[in-house]
Design a protein around this nucleic acid. Structure first.
Lengths: 235, 235
DNA sequence: AATTTCATGTAATTCGTTACATGATTCC
DNA sequence: GGAATCATGTAACGAATTACATGAAATT
């Protein structure tokens, strides 16, 4: 019941799987940590959390600091008027069912999975995804983009000449972007193939830290930032 | 009244300015001709048309073929049962007020204009936009993207190491895309500057044909289609 | 003490889609 | 004459935003 768009639900479960958090922090992670994620508003996030709780996938805990600041001596964190009545921070924690559900979502691939935002969300949690599934998603995405390319080419060929230069340039640029993403996917698929099946659905409940790991099959880039020095003019 | 999202309204007015059309065709143009435009459904388009008519910006005409096939001898097009009763094709035509309104939209730039979809729509009609405005839009877009880049860089620096390789790769790719678009904008702004102010708000009501024109200040690319022959498998 | 940032929520509204319902035209 | 495509619409729903309302904690 209540198919709440998948994407937000998925991302929330995925993030909470790594560690419990309260809504406010969750939102920030959603907007920044994950690559492409659009900025969800509180008006979206909080109701969604309620639903997830209602489904038994999360539990609300009256918590103080979100997993960074350890509870330590027992005071100082939940200060004055006991943790009972007042509206305190609510820390959301994934239940066993929630974890199971997320795992299921992770292993399931439908035609949605290739669409822009869905794909980004899937990719963001590739770390906990099985090799098989990763391949399916990457290849699905690629053929989705190739379809799109074909349509663009067709439309471009059909309408040629009749369009002004700006429209043409817009289309050209759009196509180039898509072509570029296809190439990116090719690289990813390539390295996915060669770097066999490291990291199946993760063994423990901990997020794998991957400290200084070169273990992953990703195409490495050193010299990350492009040759453009001195652009940190903050303002 | 009824601020219908701007973007669809804008695009519809812009397309109808070039030539009258009926809804069905309009939708196709929306999806293909213009570069990036997402696919609007009929459920969105038709009500929007009604609103535009109600605002006096469009008029519905019982029409047969949409401006391609000339009315010619008067028959053959609206065949049997006269053009009276039955639900016929409705051709939408821009009124004088509509044209005026569109022109106003064209010359107005708000902070919306830099956002992804808005920008694409604006760009698609740069052909009828004044040089001044084009510059504002391009530069606004660029600084919007630069803001975004800064945030991404900051977040990346903040979270380093703590993220798994896939998340990192996703962010890297996202940033690269944005950087690329900035470079594209730089080129456009550059050629906009050098190729002074050709094409102010268009003189006549006709869409400028631009047949084989090299007049525009756009960065030219010959060898447009990438080295990929034989891809016209229309299927 | 006042301001900013953190934190949680709700109601109204906007934007847009899906699914449905209908009918005309063209192609085979 | 049947299928595909063209063509127009509507009602129900969905997803997410904005604006509002509240309050606790940290900073100055």
């Amino acid at each position: 019941m209540s198919r709440r768009s998948g994407i937000l639900e998925f991302a929330v479960l995925g993030l909470l799987r790594e560690s419990p958090m309260h809504g406010y922090e969750l939102r920030k992670r959603l907007n920044t940590s994950l690559g492409i994620f659009r900025a969800f508003s509180y008006g979206t996030l909080y109701p969604c959390l309620k639903t997830l709780v209602a489904n038994g996938w999360l539990i609300e805990e009256p918590g103080a600091a979100p997993a960074d600041q350890p509870p330590a001596t027992g005071r100082a964190v939940a200060p004055a008027s006991s943790l009972a009545g007042r509206r305190a921070k609510i820390v959301y924690r994934l239940t066993a069912e929630g974890k199971e559900h997320f795992e299921e979502l992770l292993s399931h691939t439908g035609p949605d999975s290739w669409e822009d935002e869905h794909f980004a969300a899937r990719f963001a949690f590739f770390g906990q995804t099985e090799h098989e599934v990763r391949m399916r998603v990457l290849e699905g995405r690629r053929s989705r983009l190739e379809e799109r390319l074909e349509k663009m080419r067709a439309s471009l060929a059909r309408t040629r000449e009749r369009l002004d230069d700006y429209t043409l340039e817009l289309q050209r640029h759009g196509m180039e972007s898509v072509e570029r993403e296809v190439r990116w996917l090719n690289e990813l698929i390539e390295s996915e193939r060669s770097g066999r099946d490291q990291r199946r659905s993760s063994p423990g409940s901990e997020a794998q830290q991957n400290t200084a790991g070169e273990t992953d099959g990703l195409p490495r880039r050193r010299g990350d930032t492009p040759p453009d020095p001195s652009d940190d003019t903050a303002k």
